[in-house]
């Protein structure tokens, strides 16, 4: 019994227990942060992308609606001027307008229209992803002009820039979550320490009580004076120890009378 309750060993066990608790806290926070980050990346990228596509579709429709008279008047200079203004919008990298016969009437490509675009369906309006050599990756949306009988407007969105925006948005969220994680872990360590210190003291007191009752009373008087559960337990143990000692003493005295 005496060997089992070596003071150092017991304190070490208590610390190990709380280390596990702290690790548990950290793991739990980490899982929460990871889960929120994954969800955030997924939802932010999806929503940003949807928003970009939606904006591009609106722009394409806007150009298509504005182009009708210009096209019918064969005023291609004004048409070019119109798309030049829209292409200044961030993330819109190219715009081109094809006629109902598929001819390219106006575009913003320099130094020329890429072969991939030339080979594509000029009347397509569904969003499509394109990788243009030397230019990058794009999502292209289209909008028919006068229900397609006057042509089609195509707007290309820069996926690289979109990716950067997503990265920035997600990065900000992950950064915030990391701060919460670190703060949470530090707070939990502090709380666990707060709880473990009196328990350690209690354990030390019990150990001392078991080893040397008289010394314990004088050395660990502060534990007995605590106004919390630890103090209650210390007093209870003191009481039990005293009671056990008294019984033992009485037993010894009675035995000596035989």
């Amino acid at each position: 019994m005496t060997a089992m309750i070596q003071k150092g060993e017991e304190v070490h066990r208590v610390r190990k227990l709380f280390r596990k608790t702290r690790f548990g806290f950290f793991a739990l926070f980490g899982i929460v942060v990871l889960a929120i980050s994954i969800l955030s990346i997924s939802s932010v990228s999806r929503e940003l992308r949807d928003e970009y596509v939606s904006n591009s579709e609106s722009i394409a429709k806007n150009i298509a609606d504005s182009s009708v008279d210009i096209l019918l008047n064969r005023n291609l200079a004004t048409l070019q001027s119109l798309i030049d203004q829209f292409v200044q919008i961030e993330s819109i990298r190219y715009i081109y307008i094809t006629s109902d016969t598929g001819e390219f009437l106006a575009h913003t490509f320099i130094p020329g229209i890429p072969e991939e675009i030339l080979a594509s369906d000029p009347s397509a309006t569904e969003p499509v992803e394109r990788s243009l050599p030397g230019l990058g990756d794009f999502v292209e949306v289209g909008s028919p002009i006068l229900s397609g009988v006057a042509g089609t407007v195509h707007v290309g969105m820069d996926l690289e820039r979109l990716g950067l925006k997503i990265q920035r948005a997600v990065g900000q969220q992950v950064y915030l979550l990391c701060i919460i994680l670190v703060t949470g872990v530090l707070a939990s360590i502090w709380l666990v320490n707060l709880a473990s210190r009196p328990l350690t003291e209690l354990l030390e007191y019990v150990v001392a009580l078991a080893r040397e009752r008289g010394g314990a009373r004088s050395t660990h008087g502060d534990v007995l004076g605590r106004d919390d559960e630890i103090g209650d337990m210390a007093r209870l143990m003191r009481y039990v120890a005293d009671d056990a000692g008294l019984a033992r003493d009485e037993g010894t005295t009675a035995g000596g009378g035989d």
Binding site: A77, T78, H107
Partner: peptide, 8 residues
């Protein structure tokens, strides 16, 4: 020139 002038 890829603008209104060139297109004209």
């Amino acid at each position: 020139q890829n603008d209104a002038y060139g297109r004209s």
